[in-house]
Amino acid sequence: MRMARCYRSPGTVAIARPATSCLRSSPVLASRGVPGKPRFMEKWVRSLRGVVLDLDGTVYDDGDLIDGAGDATAAVRAVGLGLKFATNTSRHPCGTLIERLRRQDVYAAPDDVFTAPRAAAAWLLDSGMTRISLHVSPMTVEESTRFAIDEQQPEAVMAGDLGDDWTVERLNRVFPHVMGGAQLLEIQKNRYWKHGDTLCLDAGPFVAAIEYATATTVVVAGKPSAEFFGAAAAPLTSSPPNSSSSVTICKRTCAGPSPWEPERLS
């Protein structure tokens, strides 16, 4: 069963729930008549400054808004909590995702959506790298326009979801770059994703092949990198130095513990 995990950061407790129950059982919604666990939730919500939501499988599924997600996001904002969206998708640029949310009556400002391609670009800038070999969907090339495309001596190889364009020929183009010292930068490390009723390989297995062949360690910009969620939550955590407030992160996973079983995070 597809689950949505809720991570509380800082802290060590994670609660796994079915895809929409992170929202339906939310303390934010308990006051709006949505079934929840009010005593636990009221105390929980008082400690929060904001919520970070994954998109695919949490807010919408295969492009369609999940039942209750629109009301839930509105309720989060209504009680004064900050709300950000974080997604691993490397097939669509940020602007397209914002328009998709708005078409489904989910409000999102331009800086409310944090994507893995943007996290990858930020990592390159922080590392002082400007020359890259780029392997991403044509629709997300615009996220990397600050960098020079160099297929001779790139400083880094940026790889994302390419669908059927992940071929042996492409792997053999990436391989010598990494063997030559280029940093392998993976936008996200998803193993697979669901398209309609079909499970499809994502970028993870292909980049893992390069990682194995070159005996190198890939840098992951998106999920499951903790830095990715930290960067997405950063705008929500600007609280006074002595504040103990935290941010909750809800994301999709494919399996998890029972709905009320706490899980300790490392």
Score class of each variant (00 low, 15 high):
182 A>W: 11
183 Q>R: 10
183 Q>H: 02
185 L>V: 04
186 E>H: 04
186 E>W: 04
186 E>L: 14
187 I>W: 07
188 Q>F: 11
188 Q>T: 08
189 K>V: 01
189 K>Y: 11
190 N>W: 05
190 N>R: 00
191 R>V: 07
191 R>L: 08
191 R>A: 12
192 Y>N: 14
193 W>Y: 12
193 W>L: 02
194 K>E: 05
194 K>R: 13
195 H>T: 09
196 G>V: 09
196 G>D: 10
196 G>Q: 10
197 D>F: 01
197 D>V: 00
197 D>Q: 13
198 T>G: 01
198 T>W: 07
198 T>P: 04
198 T>Q: 13
198 T>V: 13
199 L>G: 06
200 C>I: 11
200 C>N: 10
201 L>A: 15
201 L>K: 10
202 D>I: 09
202 D>W: 07
202 D>S: 13
203 A>H: 05
205 P>E: 07
205 P>L: 02
206 F>I: 05
207 V>G: 00
207 V>S: 11
208 A>L: 09
208 A>T: 08
209 A>P: 05
210 I>R: 07
210 I>H: 07
211 E>D: 07
212 Y>D: 13
212 Y>P: 06
212 Y>R: 14
213 A>G: 14
214 T>P: 06
214 T>W: 12
214 T>H: 05
214 T>Y: 08
215 A>K: 06
215 A>H: 12
215 A>C: 03
216 T>W: 08
216 T>N: 08
216 T>L: 02
217 T>Q: 14
